[in-house]
Design a protein around this nucleic acid. Sequence first.
DNA 1: AACCGGATCAACCGCGGGATT
DNA 2: GAATCCCGCGGTTGATCCGGT
Length: 302
Amino acid sequence: MGRQPCCDKVGLKRGPWTIEEDHKLMNFILNNGIHCWRMVPKLAGLLRCGKSCRLRWINYLRPDLKRGGFTEVEENQIIQLHSRLGNRWSKIAAHFPGRTDNEIKNHWNTRIKKRLKLLGLDPVTHQPMNDQHKENDTKVVEDQDDQQKTLETTTSAESSVDDHRPKVEENSLEKAAKPADDDDQLRELVPETKEERWNINGVEQVSTEMNYNDVLNINYETVCQKLDFSTWMEQEMNNNNNNSNNIAYSYSSSLSLEESNNLSSPSLLADTYVDDSIFSWEGFNYHHHLEQDLFFFQNTQR
DNA sequence: AACCGGATCAACCGCGGGATT
DNA sequence: GAATCCCGCGGTTGATCCGGT
């Protein structure tokens, strides 16, 4: 009964990924797609568990990842979504193409939480804290950092103590504790408008909702800016006995041999890569060798 | 220069839910 | 229906970075 046993973890590598491992995983996924994470490490020749590979791909190697810090608009949007969804990071991340749940979660815990506290807002309920509760809630959050416990503290205090805190609307607490069940419900809450306005602590907040194409266009710019082809090519030339033709061909099987022979200099190659006809998000294809090389380069830049 | 503490973030862990046998 | 697996999620950890002393 049941299925085949899961992979045992004996002899599997852990810890930070090497560039070689990244390249192996990326090459495998871009060429074969993902059918079963459990099989990926075996087929890709990696001494990792499938879970680790999945995480690495989703949080780091995925080609459509948006790099860089969060903008204020994004932060405000995260706050807004968190007030409605709670700590459902994957649901929140779904509204930010190119951002991962891990990234958003980290950003929330390290920055936004503090920002809200500075504004006198409870990061859990998103409601203003008076002095007494600011002290209590902060202590609970700092000591336990546990949303459920904080919620219990807050609600029990509310029922047992006649505090001076502004009365919290039943719905908002309920929303924090029991977020919307699915995206459909959320869509009802978040209008499909380009610009959205809401209110935090009496201050109007404005968020501009980007569509997926906008994000891809930004990614295009970012990738172009990040890719320092000349530097990379110089390094590669040193590593490969100064044979640029071989490099151009080996790292871009999507270019014909004739094309790569015409790329006489690193800068010319860079220009050719960035040219719309070759490097375009519109034509992005997981099985396209050029992109897999580009994104490998991109990630090795960090 | 060395040390320290806080901030950041990649990676891991454990769990729950749905799928599979 | 039970047992087991796989995947995805959220919480947590630990390595690294960085600024202050």
